[in-house]
């Protein structure tokens, strides 16, 4: 990102002032003592079939699923116009936090209050590899809640943005190169604007030219959105794009403050 951009964002930081203080700012996301527990199926638990049968006969409780207490009491408030970076090590609960804010994972206790419906950027799960790119654009857009009319209106723009040749858009998506598929997925996912936008990292894909355009698109989405959360391991991206940062550590909030301060502290802790 250009130096001038960064400077203007810094100014914004100064203007918004101290963190979490009541002012004329409008809260868009309120997270209140949030706990999230999710369940993962344990593959191959109980060894072989005979051993499992013996366990059942002996009335030994067999733990089929493991409960993961991923978020352990998080509290913060996000305001309109803020871009908030979320940092933390792998498995610290960053993605889980985003899913809970989006209402995709239910809180075990505590609550998340939001303005409108926060959305995760990403439609990968709705797409089908064995269908053509064209069908996937339609499917992805409908999955995000667009009407067929909107899909028709946005279709050309999405394909043009993804830079997929006419011949390829009719082919099955599993014939695409990984870069091409990633571009198309990003183009579909970013075709809709959101009140509260949640971006989980690994968006910077594709060649340099596409990366420039996708950075620009994320910036536009951020500007259109009321509040943006960005999860990334790339600390420089967070410094450049966020005024505020949350440091999540083992499901708790280790630090909340201006992005530079939080990232400096985070870097000191792990370097």
């Amino acid at each position: 990102m250009a130096v001038a951009d960064r400077a203007s964002i810094r100014e914004g930081t100064v203007r918004t002032g101290s963190y979490g203080q009541e002012g004329d700012r409008v809260p868009t996301v309120v997270v209140d003592d949030l706990h999230v527990v999710y369940r993962v199926a344990r593959g191959g638990a109980g060894g072989n079939a005979a051993a499992s049968l013996l366990q059942v006969i002996q009335h030994k409780p067999r733990q089929v699923v493991t409960e993961v207490h991923a978020i352990r009491g998080l509290t913060f408030t996000a305001y309109r116009g803020e871009a908030i970076g979320v940092v933390g090590r792998n498995g610290s609960g960053k993605s889980t936090l985003l899913r809970a804010v989006a209402g995709l994972l239910p809180p075990a206790s505590g609550a998340v209050y939001t303005e409108g419906q926060p959305s995760l950027l990403g439609v990968n799960a709705a797409l089908m590899d064995t269908l053509s790119g064209e069908r996937n654009v339609v499917l992805g857009c409908l999955a995000m809640g667009m009407s067929p009319g909107e899909v028709t209106a946005r279709y050309d723009e999405i394909v043009a943005f993804a830079d997929i040749p006419d011949e390829a858009i009719q082919r099955q998506m599993n014939t695409y190169s990984s870069g091409m598929a990633a571009k198309l997925r990003f183009a579909i996912a970013s075709a809709k604007t959101h009140d509260v936008l949640l971006v989980d990292e690994a968006l910077a894909t594709g060649d340099a030219a596409f990366r420039r355009r996708s950075d620009q698109r994320i910036k536009e989405l951020r500007e259109a959105a009321g509040t943006v959360f960005l999860v990334s391991h790339n600390l420089e991206i967070i410094r450049a794009t966020c005024q505020r940062a949350l440091w999540v550590d083992e499901g708790t909030l280790r630090m909340d403050g201006p992005a530079d301060e939080v990232i400096d502290a985070y870097e000191r802790a792990y370097k």
């Binding site: 963190y19 979490g20 203080q21 309120v30 997270v31 509290t75 408030t77 209050y113 440091w247 909340d256």
Partner: peptide, 11 residues
């Protein structure tokens, strides 16, 4: 963490 959220009104 979170000076703000704990200060003033309850979330």
């Amino acid at each position: 963490a979170a000076v703000g959220a704990n200060a003033s009104p309850a979330p």
